[in-house]
Write a protein that binds this DNA or RNA. Structure first.
Lengths: 99, 99
DNA sequence: TAAACTGGTTTACAATATAAACCAATAAAA
DNA sequence: TTTTATTGGTTTATATTGTAAACCAGTTTA
C-alpha cells in the first residue's frame, strides 16, 4: 500500500538540501543558505543530521582566510533520495499503489 | 526556487489519508486505519487536523447500532493536495525549479 | 580600536507526531 | 446475567523535530 517515507528526507529543508546536492555535486554553506532561504542556524542543524546519517559529506576548510564548509552528496544519500522519491509516488498517484 | 510545502499535508499519515480520499470519494475510520496501518489514536488526531483545516469533512453517524465516522475530501482539500504535489516537484526534479 | 559583517554553531523553545491509556457501547461467553 | 472481549473511537502524555534567537571567533571597514 503506502511505502514508509524516510523521516530524514521527509523534511522540507533537508529535502531541499539533498535536492540541490543531487544536481550540483558540491555546494558550500553560503550557497545552500541562499538557495534554500533557510536561516544559518537551521541549515547548520540539518546539514549535521544529513552528515551524521552519512547522506552527505561535509568538509570544513579555508578559502583564503575565511572558513568554508563544503557539502557533497554520498552514494548512500543518492540511494536514499531515489528510494524516497519512489516511495512518495505511492502517495501522490493512486495508480502507484498496489492496494 | 523551492515552493514551500503545506505543513498540513507534509506529514506521512495525513498525506496518506488525503491520498486515499482523493481516489475514493468517501471512506470511514476503519477503512482508513486499515489502509494506512496507523494506530487509531494517531489517525484520530490527524483526521481532526485535516477536518479543522477544512481539507476534509467528517460525519459521525451510525450503521445499525454501531458508530461510524465517514470522511470525505473537500474542494479545499483537493486544491491543497494538487498544490502540494506541484510544489513537491521542485524538490524532486531539478528541472522543475527555476533557479 | 570600535563597529559591523561573515560564516557559522549552540541552545532554547515551540510545534509535531505518535502511541498508550482510556472510554462508552455492543457482542460473546460463562 | 454478570463478566469478558471487541469495536470504534478520543484524550493525554511523551518523545522527536524543526526553527530561530543568541551566541562566537575571525575579518574587514570606518
Amino acid at each position: 500500500m503506502f511505502e514508509p517515507l524516510d523521516p530524514l528526507l521527509h523534511s522540507e529543508l533537508r529535502l531541499a538540501v539533498i535536492s540541490i546536492l543531487i544536481s550540483v555535486e558540491e555546494a558550500d554553506f553560503v550557497y545552500l543558505r541562499e538557495k534554500t532561504g533557510a536561516t544559518a542556524g537551521n541549515l547548520s542543524v540539518q546539514i549535521n543530521k544529513l552528515n551524521e546519517a552519512g547522506y552527505i559529506k561535509v568538509e570544513r576548510g579555508f578559502i583564503g582566510k575565511r572558513t568554508r564548509t563544503v557539502c557533497k552528496i554520498s552514494s548512500k544519500g543518492i540511494d536514499a533520495f531515489e528510494k524516497y522519491v519512489e516511495a512518495l509516488k505511492s502517495y501522490l498517484d493512486p495508480r502507484d499503489r498496489t492496494d
